[in-house]
Design a protein around this nucleic acid. Structure first.
Length: 566
RNA sequence: GACCCCAUCGUCUAGUCAGGUCCAGGACACCAGGUUUUCAUCCUGGUAACACGGGUUCGAAUCCCGUUGGGGUCGCCA
């Protein structure tokens, strides 16, 4: 197939949110297709009837679209009003495996006819017993067709008895060429006759993936390293299958990606959220469900079993009650925390891939947008080592996005969008006249949008709700000669006369007054800062005062003078 | 346990395929100093790694073998 176009695919199973590791796989598949001038395809592997759900599918589509990892072929999805992605220009769909059962059945019949696959009638208990026996004998369990297998009888029985179909694994060692790992060999004796169709009639992952990749023309398969041991099965299946005209199934190029782990070395997963919440409960001695909607027995079982998981909504309510932030594991978590999708993609790509380029100043190139990936990504620079997810570094990347790649306007727009979804009252404020000022004050002090309101929190409360920090009062108002209280009383008049009440005018007026009065700025700024915010830390003085307005500033100064009178 | 994969600063990594220019470079974090009205930013400097043991070679982070350590898989899940 020298001229076949490059097709990559991401094939998630819709059993939950899109995991950050899956997001990286999707990003790499997307980038490779772009780089090679190919097409990126999205396929939904929903053959597990019990665990797949429509809502999970929609969630995954949304998460990918949010990241900007857009598929050329696959389920249709509206990324913006009037802009739809996906579709089936080559007529290789449908892209939901549950809708492709007839296709799989056809190929399974084809295999059975040639005795390359066969029905098996073992019960779950029988299999389990055999597995346990093998384990007891310290042997690796593997299913092989019995020597006295009666094929004609089996073919008769399969018409009305529950059964699975197993692939007759050829007794040949399998060699797999991997673009990341190099050549990997597997012994015959380690591969067994895998099930290719379950008793419920749905194909197993191994079978569906081989059929679909071939029929959809997939040329490059990028997937997590946990699939490495599955590859010989897929290669064997490809070797057994051929089209009507005799053309054999192709083996795509494989690239197995290193895995992503937690900083503590454990596997990054949804359970980490439970772990965090459980630890917080233990620490506070909470033994009964503190929020409604969680049953007493469920809660105590959850508390005792480190492996158990609470339902997502229950977990979120619990976290809100405990006032803790659950660790971000899934793409939706990062979105909710207010990360920028480009920063997430940038950091994710760096986890296992490196362009190997230097900046003019000699530092390594490691900041980029997806356009860069589309231009430079290739499998030959994917690393082999599992990587630990470092939230602190991601935070630094995200902060740089806000600080260096956005201006106040762009920041305000992003902040408003975020708040509209996650903090409506804040969104209202940001949409008002103070929005610009809020953005200007918050942006330099923000790493993720969820934290953005912290530095301007004082401006979101009523003038008479300022809580004066005792240490701040002591340090900035009580000490010194003249002390801060005296200073405050003096400068009140200056504040009252500033017009217009803008950061620039305020700063200018205060600087001029301090100079004229012959005192350092610190002597003036800190008392004012405490009077207006209650603390010694805030954005620039001009911004701080402007945010509460002239009226607010004066009211706060007066109240400070009154409340903190010695 | 069996099979497979991996191994450079705390973390992500460059350097490894084509051995010398590497007493190992960058980023994040950390520490110290500086700028600044506080904070954040910014600037300067610093601490910090080739897992271990054998080989091959004039020469090994780089090649080979072993050990140790870590990870993955062993489902009618994907």
């Amino acid at each position: 197939m020298p001229d076949s176009p490059v097709i990559t695919r991401f094939a998630p199973s819709p059993t939950g949110h899109l995991h950050i590791g899956g997001a990286r796989t999707a990003l790499f598949c997307w980038a490779l297709a772009r780089r090679l001038g190919g097409r990126f395809l999205l396929r939904i592997e929903d053959t597990d009837r019990a665990r797949s759900s429509e809502s999970a599918t929609v969630g995954i589509l949304q998460d990918l679209a949010w990241l900007g990892v857009e598929w050329d072929e696959g389920p249709r999805f509206d990324v913006a009003p009037g802009r739809t992605i996906g579709g089936d220009p080559r007529s290789v769909g449908p892209f939901y495996q549950a809708q492709r059962i007839e296709i799989y059945d056809r190929w399974i019949d084809w295999l059975i006819e040639r005795d390359l696959a066969y029905p098996a009638f073992d019960s779950g208990e029988e299999i389990e017993a055999a597995r346990r026996a093998a384990q007891a004998a310290k042997r690796t369990y593997r299913y092989k067709r019995a020597a006295d297998y009666d094929r004609p009888a089996a073919l008769r029985r399969m018409r009305d008895e529950p059964h699975v179909v197993r692939f007759n694994m050829p007794e040949r060692p399998v060699r797999v060429m991997d673009d990341v790992l190099g050549e990997v060999s597997f012994n015959v004796e380690d591969t067994d006759d895998l099930v290719i169709r379950k008793a419920d009639g749905f194909p197993t992952y191994h079978f569906a993936v081989v059929i679909d990749d071939e029929l959809m023309g997939v040329t490059h398969v990028l997937r997590g390293q946990e699939h490495l041991n599955n590859t010989p099965r897929h290669v064997a299946l490809q070797g057994a299958l051929a089209h009507e005209d005799g053309t054999p199934f192709r083996t795509p190029r494989y690239a197995h990606l290193p895995l992503i782990f937690n900083p503590d070395g454990s596997k990054m997963g949804k359970r980490d959220k439970d772990k965090a919440a459980r630890a917080a409960c233990r620490e506070r001695g909470i033994e009964a469900p503190p929020v409604p909607g969680i049953e007493e027995s469920v809660f105590s079982a959850w508390l005792d079993d480190a492996k158990s998981q609470l339902e997502t909504h229950a977990l979120e309510r619990l976290a809100a009650y405990l006032a803790i932030d659950l660790p971000e594991i899934e793409v939706a978590d990062f979105r909710r925390s207010g990360y920028d999708p480009e920063a997430v993609c940038n950091y994710l790509a760096l986890l296992g891939w490196n362009p190997g380029l230097k900046n003019p100043d000699g530092t390594d190139v490691e900041r980029w947008t997806k356009d860069f990936l589309a231009k430079h990504f290739a499998t030959d620079r994917i690393g082999k080592k599992n990587a630990q997810f470092d939230r602190t570094k991601l935070l630094a990347f995200n902060a740089d996005r806000l600080q260096k790649d956005m201006d106040d306007r762009a920041f305000l727009a992003a902040w408003r969008d975020w708040a509209t979804e996650h903090d409506p009252p804040l969104a209202t404020v940001l949409a008002g006249t103070r929005g610009e000022l809020m953005a200007r004050a918050a942006r330099p002090r923000t790493r993720i949008l969820r934290e953005a309101s912290a530095p301007v929190r004082f401006a979101l409360i009523a003038d008479d709700a300022v809580e004066f920090d005792a240490k701040a009062v002591e340090k900035a108002l009580s000490k010194g000669e003249p002390n801060g209280m005296a200073m405050l009383a003096e400068i009140r008049a200056v504040i009252a006369g500033i017009e217009p009440f803008t950061p620039q005018a305020i700063d200018a007026a205060i600087t001029a007054w301090a100079q004229q009065r012959g005192v350092g700025m610190g002597k003036v700024a800190q008392p004012l800062r405490v009077a207006v915010t209650g603390a010694t830390v805030s954005p620039g003085l001009g911004e701080t005062l402007a945010l509460v307005g002239a009226k607010g500033a004066l009211a706060r100064i007066d109240r400070c003078l009154k409340v903190n009178r010695a």
